[in-house]
Every structure is written in C-alpha cells, then in structure tokens.
Amino acid sequence: MKTQTEKKGDEEDSMVEHGDIWTLEDGNKYVVASIVTMNDRKFVYLIQKTDYKNYIIGEYLGEDDLEEVDDPDLLETLIVKFNEDLKDKLPKIIEQYL
C-alpha cells in the first residue's frame, strides 16, 4: 500500500510529462522537452514554442513553481542527462504522437 507521500509524488509526476505545454508568467508558452530526476529532484528542459533559441533549464519544485538552475556543475551534468533522456524517449513520443 502506498503512503500519502508516495501518492503525492505520483500525482506530481503526472503533472510533468514530455511534450506538455506550459505557459509561464511572462506569457510565453514552453514545451517540456526533457525531464531528468536526480536525488528526488526533478529537472526540466523547456523550449519556447515560438522561438526555440530560448530555453530554460530549471528545477520543478512542485505545484506551479519552477526555479532556474545556476549551479555550473549541476548544469553540466544535466545537459548530459537531458541528452540521454531525449535519445531514449523521443522515438517513443514521436510514435505516440503521430
């Protein structure tokens, strides 16, 4: 039987999925391109819908909060992990979407 915390975690997981479209408070829409979980922390690579030069690498804090990552070592690790995640998940998402 799952505990309350685990249930909450599952609910939050379902709130972040590849391909989700998020509108941030600046009014811009972003697509959740990649998701990486490390040490119980969830990180996302967002790409702006209208201009894919604009990206955000942030930690999803739950609810509706997102915080940009500013630790250089963590960023370097995340870039590699996002790359792995996209290579792994993208073919499945394409198959699912088309």
């Binding site: 479209i21 941030l24 955000i56 915080e67 940009e68």
Partner: peptide, 10 residues
C-alpha cells in the same frame, strides 16, 4: 523563479 500559469497538452 517562474510560475506556471497554465498547463496544456497537444
């Protein structure tokens, strides 16, 4: 910090 104001799916 950012606030997510809306969530959609394609």
């Amino acid at each position: 910090k950012h606030k997510i104001t809306k969530r959609e799916k394609a």
